[in-house]
């Protein structure tokens, strides 16, 4: 090959073709489907909590995309039904994730709805599950001598509780928990919503 411009133009044309297939076409197909019926938009507090989730990088260990039972026992673990494209209508940025160093969180709001549990778990995961390798997020909490009105106190076992005083959730922690509590996907998915059904064909259910 001896010519620069044909080389560059052809290379860019191939990229344009790939963009058409991988970006534009699915964008049109997914865009044509609205939100899953019954899916609630995030509240202002949940959006703030979602920003915390993004900024702390939760997505690097937690996916939000259960697979179908034909592929994996995700629903058996209580992670929720198989996700479809319309479940993510209000998501920006998307938080599908690619790692399960921790469990999937698509349905965490239905699986572990307790605010108190979530706060304890964020403050120190090993206070609940000794085997957990999740980071603790002590900076989302504040140590006070005495709880004031309106404070949400974190329930802690003796070995993780402070010697005196109480651990109180900062607004960031409460927002994050509100977001997690809102992650419920028990709505039946619309039939038109795309998902990869490549495993479902002829599989034993």
């Amino acid at each position: 090959m001896n010519r620069v411009f044909p080389l560059a133009i052809l290379a860019l044309a191939i990229l344009a073709f790939a963009t058409l297939v991988l970006v534009v076409a699915p964008g049109l197909q997914v865009g044509a489907v609205g939100p899953t019926p019954g899916l609630q938009p995030y509240t202002a507090q949940q959006l703030r909590g979602r920003d915390q989730y993004v900024s702390l990088g939760c997505v690097y260990c937690h996916s939000q995309q259960p697979r179908s039972l034909a592929q994996a026992p995700d629903s058996d673990r209580g992670w929720g039904r198989a996700a479809v494209a319309s479940d993510y209508y209000y998501d920006r940025p998307h938080l599908l994730g690619t790692m399960r160093s921790g469990p999937d969180l698509f349905n965490i709001g239905a699986r572990l709805p307790s605010q108190g549990w979530q706060l304890t778990h964020l403050y120190q995961p090993r206070a609940i599950a000794p085997w957990s390798i999740m980071p603790a997020y002590p900076f989302l909490f504040v140590h006070k001598d005495k709880a004031e009105t309106g404070d949400v106190v974190v329930a802690l076992t003796q070995n993780y509780a402070p010697k005196s005083g109480v651990i109180v959730a900062r607004p960031e922690a409460l927002d994050l928990v509100a977001y997690l509590q809102g992650l419920k996907h028990d709505q039946p998915p619309p039939a038109s919503a795309p998902r990869d059904a490549g495993y479902d064909r002829g599989a034993e259910r």
Binding site: V21, L22, A25, P26, Q29, V30, Q65, R67, S68, Q71, A72, A83, V84, A85, D87, Y88, L96, T98, A193, P194, R195, D196, A197, G198, Y199
Partner: peptide, 16 residues
């Protein structure tokens, strides 16, 4: 898109 196999994107896209 092989990072989204089994995920909420069209089957044909994953196949590509």
């Amino acid at each position: 898109i092989h990072h989204l196999i089994g995920g909420p994107v069209p089957t044909w896209l994953v196949n590509v």
